[in-house]
């Protein structure tokens, strides 16, 4: 564990020095993420001009949900996303060998090597917005409820990572340079909507098969509404299953890896 921690510190140092070399890009990316946050907030602000409630939530409650998924997104962008961008290309070009011969877990190395320094600043902004929505939230809540929300959001980050990986892993068989990562980004919008808007089979899709609703909407619901064991157990079990599925398919993919580029 200590070895991995020390290794991660090296990744951090390397990523910050790399980001500082491209300063204009560093600045542009911060602005880009800020615009993404603003667009997301404006999206719901415009909708609330036409309705006082959405999926059973008032505007104030929905902003807690928005802040929650922005926080999950910021954590993902900072720690994981850059690595996910390169992973299909490593597989496609046969460049995975470099990672497989290292004396560390290839999954750890490939998933966390690139720390996005510019997104780190945006993570601070997202965390600021998250804190602001909680401070201005008119209903009282306990420290334990807050702790539960934060824990479930961290679980959301892990679940989001698993879904992402499951969209990339098919590259081991399809040999394309992108996998289904574009599809993942397109479907990612499902995470940015309250789960109650989904009904019937679509609800099953986004809560079980592609559980984007479990990333931020379920945690926000457990925080904003009365704690419900059924929702909590659903969240915990699906997360566990997805983690195991991801590890299974990753190992299967590695066994299928031929080193030859496509």
């Amino acid at each position: 564990m200590r070895r991995y921690f020390r290794l991660y510190l090296h990744f951090l140092r390397f990523s910050f020095s790399k980001a500082m070399e491209f300063r204009i890009d560093f600045t542009f990316r911060i602005v880009m993420d800020l615009i993404y946050y603003i667009v997301n907030i404006l999206f719901f602000k415009v909708i609330y001009l036409h309705t006082p409630m959405l999926a059973g939530w008032s505007e104030e409650q929905l902003m807690v949900f928005v802040a929650s998924y922005l926080l999950v997104d910021a954590i993902n962008m900072t720690f994981i996303s850059s690595n996910m961008w390169w992973l299909p290309q490593h597989i496609n070009r046969g460049a995975l060998d470099y990672y497989l011969i290292r004396p560390v877990s290839p999954l750890f190395f490939l998933s966390l090597r690139e720390f996005s320094a510019n997104s780190f600043l945006n993570l601070l902004i997202a965390a600021g917005f998250f804190s602001y929505t909680l401070f201005t939230y008119s209903h009282p809540f306990s420290f334990l409820e807050l702790l539960l929300l934060l824990t479930l959001l961290l679980n959301g980050v892990a679940l989001y990572y698993c879904i992402q990986m499951l969209m990339i892993i098919p590259v081991f068989w399809t040999h394309s340079s992108r996998g289904f990562i574009d599809l993942f980004w397109a479907m990612g919008i499902a995470m940015e909507r309250p789960d109650r808007i989904y009904q019937g089979w679509l609800r099953k899709v986004f809560t079980v098969i592609l559980p984007f609703s479990l990333v931020a909407s379920f945690p926000a619901r457990l925080f904003l509404e009365k704690f419900d064991w059924e929702t909590f157990l659903h969240l915990a079990s699906v997360s566990l299953i997805f983690w195991m599925l991801m590890l299974f398919f990753w190992k299967l993919g590695l066994r299928n890896y031929s080193s030859a580029s496509s």
Partner: peptide, 25 residues
């Protein structure tokens, strides 16, 4: 395969999400 999955997935999933949102509104 990538192309059709992405095309159909992106188009229909985004459509379904948007429809669900507006239906709720």
């Amino acid at each position: 395969s990538d192309f059709w999955v992405t095309f159909l997935g992106q188009t229909f999933i985004q459509l379904l999400i948007a429809r669900a949102l507006w239906k709720s509104v």
